[in-house]
Design a protein around this nucleic acid. Structure first.
Lengths: 227, 227
DNA sequence: AAATCTATTATCCATTTGTATAATTTTAAA
DNA sequence: TTTAAAATTATACAAATGGATAATAGATTT
């Protein structure tokens, strides 16, 4: 159990975030932790990348919704210019697509902006060591991306609590139309069935997704990527 | 999403590990942290699953190399028997295949056994909250599993500000509630105004966003991130 | 001071939505 | 083959939604 891996005492970080208020707040908050040292900040991706290339920080806190070049593109570029720099996405975007894209782009962690400073400081330390961390609110999105192993042994996969698995093919089809803003009447027309059928499907979708109405269903479908 | 998620002060955990020495060591080490409470231990998967089903712990520390049923299979079963229980794989296996399989089987975290007690305690707390964590030594395996996004640039940036700029502060507030699945009545209650007012706001939101109904508004709000 | 914008409230009304219940047919599995 | 699950259709009803229209008050701008 002896630590062969030498942890860095101080983690140097760069913040890339367009809102000055958030940026300044982050900086002052993080600088209160003695293992964190904010060495630079930028308000857009281009500026950020130059800075990161020069400073080669341990960790970058990257916003996704940046003006001009967005955070995903920036993350890819960071990984090219500073190979050893880890990227933590810090955003309010909860879309499944973006979580997957961010991790695919090379991000080491994905945090939502309502994270506590304490947790963020821990994430920064862990990510600096090379760990991967995904925020509770979107962790299921990332984890569901990994395929269920088949060859484990004979496993009686009773019923998966996966929301998507609960829906039938037809219901998934209806859900897709629903997310596209179609009314029951329009859905019925698309599927060439009666409105009653469309309503029946929507009803069972609502029940299976444990939501009260179609808005919640659409939101859940998008956020959990079950489209 | 407005649910007030309160962190549990104490995390109840069960340890499934065949080597008694390791098991006892883990238990005594972890019990020194006041936010961790080891409520049970098992030396094989069958025994562990029974225990977990009965105790419904917050977190399970699961070894991979177990006699009889292995840790992967056990993880799948745990997720069936105790839906809300999080699984942390604690192993010395560094094979990429196993990392991917474990995460696919439903594990929320993957730790190597040379992890420091301090870090493990943090991981336990974070995972109890729902986070996903992967050990530095194998994080690249997990992260490389996510495909590199192709059309990064296409992810909108400028258009977002336009749509958002058109909405007043109040309307944005209403939109947020709408996205959270609130009905007009509920929105009115939240904002302490009449239902008529809420309806008026929703109406003008629909017009400004150029959509026909609240489902489309919610979808647009999420996809274009104007929440 | 006048014009404009925003927030608020209200009424009327057609349409949509969600729920309950139930019957029939098709399809898939045991 | 029998059984079970899924898809289909239907009726009826309470509740919610969206559109049109309009009036009032407060704040901001010109």
């Amino acid at each position: 159990m002896t630590e062969i891996m030498q942890k860095k005492e101080v983690v140097n970080i760069v913040i890339v975030e367009d809102y000055k208020l958030t940026r300044v707040g982050l900086k002052s908050t993080l600088n209160e932790y003695k293992h964190i040292n904010v060495v630079g900040e930028a308000e857009d991706a281009d500026e950020g990348i130059k800075l990161i290339e020069k400073l080669q920080p341990d960790v970058v806190l990257m916003d996704l919704g940046l003006p001009g070049m967005n955070g995903l593109e920036a993350t890819i570029k960071v990984k090219e210019k500073a190979v050893n720099t880890k990227v933590i996405i810090l955003t309010s975007h909860e879309r499944g697509e973006e979580v997957i894209a961010a991790l695919g782009a090379g991000a080491n962690a994905y945090c939502l902006k309502d994270i506590t400073p304490e947790t963020l400081s821990e994430v920064i330390r862990n990510v600096a060591d090379g760990a991967c961390w995904v925020d509770p609110a979107v962790s299921s999105i990332a984890l569901n991306f990994f395929p269920k192993p088949e060859n484990v042994t004979l496993l009686q996969t009773t019923e998966v609590q996966d929301a998507r698995a609960q829906l039938t093919e037809r219901e998934l089809e209806v859900l897709r139309h629903l997310v596209n803003g179609k009314s029951n009447t329009e859905i019925a027309k698309e599927l060439i069935v009666s409105v009653h059928t469309a309503k029946a499907h929507v009803c069972s979708i609502l029940q299976k997704l444990c939501v009260d109405d179609r808005v919640q269903a659409a939101v859940k479908a998008i956020k959990e990527n079950i489209i």
